[in-house]
Design a protein around this nucleic acid. Sequence first.
RNA 1: GUCGCCAUCGUCUAGUCUGGUUCAGGACACCGGCCUUUCACGUCGGCAACAGGGGUUCAAAUCCCCUUGGCGACGCCA
Length: 492
Amino acid sequence: MEIRVRFAPSPTGYLHMGGARTAIFNWLYARQRGGKFILRIEDTDKERSTKEAIDAILNGLRWLGIDWDEGPYFQSDYFNIHREWAYNLLREGKAYRCFATEEELENLRKELQKEKKSFKFYPKYRDLDLKESNDMAENGKPFVIRFKVPREKEIVRYVDFIYGEIVKKIEEIEDFVILRQDGTPLYNLSCVVDDIRMNITDVIRGQDHINNTSKQILLYEAFGAKPPNFAHLPLILAKDKSKLSKRKHGEVASLTYYINKGFIPEALFNFLALLGWSPKTNEEYMPKEKLLKLFDIKKVNKSNAIFNFDEKNQKEWTDKKAIWLNAQYISKYPYEKIYPYVKEVLIKNNLWKEEYEKEKKEWFRFAIDSLRTRLHSLNEFATLGKPFFSSEYEINEEALNHILQNKEILNENLVELAEEFFKNENFEIEEIEKTLRDFAERKNIKAGIFIGALRVALTGQKEGIGIFHIIKIIGKEETKKRIEEFSKRYLI
RNA sequence: GUCGCCAUCGUCUAGUCUGGUUCAGGACACCGGCCUUUCACGUCGGCAACAGGGGUUCAAAUCCCCUUGGCGACGCCA
């Protein structure tokens, strides 16, 4: 039988990390078995659903490289069908109209609480004769439709791929509402009806749905359908051990933030896939193909994972392992794969020049390959990389002050050193290095003094890639020019 | 409160099913050495955990029970 999974987010917020991981696991599961991945937007709560949220979800999935075979379906388009199915249950005596008012219910709930019981159903309406129920409805008395949980059964049971056997006592399940007073369907109904209609074979979703699953299985049975397989994923928690959410923990919970922060999609994909699941091979760098080969839904662990970040610390804005993985991808990706991302970032920051893919193609590649070994974010191509693509870069004050300790030496020698560089014929790294070291030796000055000064003069930064790489990338003329300008401005 | 789930280094995790090979392995982070007279690269090394208590057993991180802790669900939200 063909595997069919679905990712069914509700468009009430942006695509968050938990949702993204659910999508990843669904996608991995479907793709490794030649199954279909269906995207369904669960917008049954019209009040809270927004167009922006839908766009964010779609864009987020595309960005992650998660493609879908069907959809996006919008659940609200099928309200009539859901309602029809609910009424079928009503006709068959598997559901009933509950005419209880809010007050009535509240009182009942309070009373039950005194006896330490919780609400399960309202016999008065549950046992109402269908004809009488029809009459009341016709007379305009408002009602909801509740599912009539089969009380003759003892338990509902299913085997979860991850949690194993889950048994729930029938007596603990209330007659839940499936149709609102205004006739719109509720989550449990819509979800089951659509999963049946769409022939979903495997439901992979967050662990917070475990409780719903028992109810949903009852619905499957009422509809005479075979329930799908279920796999409930452990939750992603924040440091305070509560469920990671945008409301509580801010942007770090939202996928959009990672896009803006310069993540490579596959790096985030990799990180998320390893959160709650392990290939058990001691490897961390796992591109999609490898993940596809090794992923096993049944080996996902049961305990929740904590997302370790510190919002107060810039460098730890998200889990450090995620940042580290991103750095891995930036430096290990084949050039062809990293290139489009770099181009995009440079364009966004007005640093892109057409010649980078024409006459300066080779130069550009060398620059990027040198640069990327040190970067943690794509955005750094435009910040730390700026001096290579523009002569307008800022000078780090701390770094400047540091080298100005040797102001006199530099004033006497730096421009002369620049002239020496200029005499280089090939301007290759070894040659540049030799020039500098010979020069320093001749002058009896530590090479380090020049190295530090050159870094500041040429890039304005106190750290970065090797200085000889920097000089080669910046080029003969520009190096000379920058040193001269720097001397005039700071050394005299 | 009720019901359910979970419990190995600070964090992600391997090992738990099939008890001995583990005074518990890897990764991130952290600390130190080397390299670099730059570096958020690289490299080598270090720190660091079986929640607690009872069993069962020749032997328990691994099996059983209890306690504790954490999380989730208890909506005419999804």
